[in-house]
């Protein structure tokens, strides 16, 4: 497959997951914010924006409102990680590689985009709640189509690889935001990643912080857990390059992800809560490192090259002696 297409597929996976997860995170927190005391609203908003990667240093305190947070994280097309920007980016990438994905997938992304821009006029016609639900639904549609309409070939692997990495990164952000400030409502948090029911069936009790974190990070069976997603990503890499070295691994991406997965796998469960403040940034960092490693291995030279014209001889030639 063309490197450029592989890269686009990887990023479609990431962007769609990012949009969906951002919607999930906002859904929990907007709820939370509306209930909070007025004076703590600014602080909570600041935390949320920081966790989502928005630089708030030059924002005035009165700008830090729930409404503004939704604008920035959901609708702002100039914020590259907002929901709308992610969906636009996913569609632009899909357009460039539409011959490499199923036409259903392309249509799903295209219809999502059309709904945002053509029909409702920039998504703002939605209430936040309806908008987040719409985004989650579209995410589910795309995910479903990835799994049901694409052959398990390299195209599928790059897409799932992107989706899995993004899922880990966003889960770390979700937890980081939740573990700041007042004790979060763990039921809402679990629901936001569609994990509440699975949690109840596993633990048969109402969630507490450490159990919820344990479930989201370490569970081996729940598909949105960090452990599960890391393992999926690793499997994709293993299948992309099935050659295995006798010692260690040649594949830097696989090495980074494998090590991270083992960290989670052999973590002392009782230490989880105290390790969390280090663990969450590590997850994000290592996912970034894996992404870089994957890019340098599979997506080399996908950029446009600008050419410089070599200087011509007569520019410097010395005069002929006359």
């Amino acid at each position: 497959m063309l490197s450029r297409i592989a890269e686009s597929l990887f990023w479609i996976g990431r962007y769609v997951e990012r949009a969906e997860d951002t919607a999930r995170i906002l859904d929990v927190h907007i709820h939370h914010l509306l209930e909070a005391q007025l004076e703590s609203e600014a602080e909570l908003c600041g935390v949320l924006l920081s966790v989502m990667g928005v630089k708030i240093a030059d924002m005035a305190a009165e700008e830090l409102t729930a409404r503004r947070v939704v604008e920035i994280l959901a609708f702002d097309t100039t914020n590259p990680s907002s929901i709308v920007a992610s969906l636009v980016a996913a569609r632009v990438n899909a357009r460039g590689v539409s011959e490499a994905i199923s036409s259903e997938m392309w249509e799903a992304l295209n219809v999502t985009y059309n709904t945002l821009f053509t029909e409702s006029g920039h998504g703002s016609a939605f209430t936040p709640y309806a908008f987040f639900r719409f985004v989650r639904e579209r995410g589910a549609v795309v995910s479903g189509l990835i799994d049901s309409t694409m052959s398990r070939d390299d195209a599928w692997r790059f897409m799932v690889l992107g989706r899995s990495l993004e899922r880990v990164d966003m889960l770390a952000r979700l937890l980081a935001a939740a573990t700041v400030g007042p004790e979060p409502d763990w039921v809402v948090l679990l629901r936001s990643v569609s994990a509440h029911e699975a949690f109840l069936r596993t633990y048969r009790r109402e969630p507490e912080g450490h159990l919820a974190a344990q479930f989201l990070l370490l569970d081996r069976l729940f598909p949105r857990s960090a452990f599960y997603s890391l393992r999926s990503a690793e499997e994709c890499l293993a299948e992309l390059d099935p050659r295995s070295a006798r010692v260690g691994t040649q594949d830097e991406g696989r090495r980074v992800l494998g090590r991270l997965r083992t960290t989670l796998e052999f973590l002392r469960v009782s230490d989880l809560m105290s390790d969390l403040p280090e663990l969450l940034p590590e997850l994000q960092r290592e996912c970034g490192a894996a992404s870089v490693a994957i890019a340098s291995r599979y997506f080399r030279q996908t950029n446009v090259i600008e050419w410089t014209v070599e200087r011509a001889e007569f520019d410097v030639v010395q005069p002929i002696g006359l």
Binding site: E43, G53, A57, L64, T179
Partner: peptide, 12 residues
């Protein structure tokens, strides 16, 4: 704890 002004992890 991440709070206003702490370093920010920008999503790629």
């Amino acid at each position: 704890r991440p709070a206003a002004g702490t370093p920010v992890v920008v999503p790629d």
